[in-house]
Design a protein around this nucleic acid. Structure first.
Lengths: 198, 198
DNA sequence: GACTATAGCGGACTACGGTCCGCTTGTGTC
DNA sequence: GACACAAGCGGACCGTAGTCCGCTATAGTC
């Protein structure tokens, strides 16, 4: 429970309250489930005022995302500096497949948080900085793999589409697909796209 | 402004109020823009109580969707009974392309409503009956075109993904793509998927 | 240790979506 | 036309996300 100081200097009470809030939120999620607690509940559980909550986390969406910020940042880190095939060193096509596997594994664990955060979020998934990050990554790999065609940019979004929280949750929970089936499906899609410009 | 009686018998005052509400909503949307009015505003503008609003439309999402229910139903109708290539009579692959064009044209006109409805909706896009309808349609065409493989079902979702309100709005408004560029991109994706199993 | 500027705090307040329930009005029956 | 009854109505009410601003605690300075 730390979720990045981010600032150059953090006052002691601020730090204490940030941790309190994150712990309280995690406790509430475990006790009553995600989506079954209000921001007032969090404030009460943490023993802070609502103003403090919003000063630190902006909105409910950010608070929920903060709960999974560590694994999310770790995944992003491993894309840039991790070991091949997720990180640099492998062939672009191979890295692309590894990226899909990695993101699907991440979703399989954290999708409830992602969905909840999205429900309360002011910006949709596509406008979120994290999407821009993934987009850049996939665009680079795709261009390396199949070169630069008019529709390459579009195909990036097409590949990222099924890796969003809603489609994933739909496939897994509503359609009852296993993680392996979803993975296999995405690899088929990925191969189709990779083959399209060759 | 009618949006389907749906029931076997509708009382006169109920009908009158339904029309009032729909007209008032349309007027508000035009005056202040979508998302800039509350349900209280609608009730006041229509001259009815809030209870009436919710009795007829369930929630804000449904109210907004009701505004575009006529063109939406017309589009669905043309998929089933319309002229080829959108309706029956053309080759599956051709119908698939026509479906994408048609849905993108629909989105281009109504995406603001779709997004707003989704923001307030209790169920996400994938759980909405309309998605199930499109899904069945595309699944049928895809199976006719490339046969039944393990991942065919997944590819249906992959094809429908970029035809959602959020990705469309992102591509058009945030990325500045023209409708033609988006169309071309989807056709590329569609062709890639169609070629994948041949 | 006293002083000060300010980052941080807290909770009353607002706006909004949605519910509830007693009252009204339309409709079908005689 | 009178009656009964149910479909429909309306607005007070509730819970929740998010704001605002006067007050407090902290961290540097001397």
């Amino acid at each position: 429970m730390s979720a990045a100081p981010t600032q150059e200097r953090e006052r002691a009470d601020a730090r204490r309250n940030r941790e309190r809030i994150l712990c309280a939120t995690a406790r509430l999620v475990e006790r009553v489930g995600i989506d079954c607690f209000s921001m007032d509940d969090v404030a009460a559980e943490a023993g802070v005022g609502k103003g403090t909550l919003y000063r630190r986390f902006g909105d409910k969406s950010s608070l929920i995302r903060a709960l999974i910020s560590e694994p999310e940042q770790a995944f992003q880190e491993s894309l840039i500096r991790g070991e091949a095939p997720l990180g640099p060193g492998a062939a672009p096509a191979e890295r692309l497949h590894a990226f899909g596997d990695g993101l699907l594994a991440f979703l399989d664990r954290h999708v409830i948080y992602m969905q909840s955060a999205e429900r309360f979020g002011a910006v949709d998934r596509y406008r979120h900085p994290v999407y821009a990050f993934y987009r850049t990554h996939v665009a680079l790999l795709l261009r390396q793999a199949i070169g630069d065609a008019a529709s390459t940019d579009y195909l990036v979004d097409a590949l990222l589409g099924p890796l969003g929280p809603e489609p994933f949750a739909y496939q897994r929970d509503a359609r009852g697909m296993s993680l392996d089936e979803i993975r296999a499906g995405w690899h088929t899609l990925c191969d189709a796209v990779l083959a399209s410009s060759r």
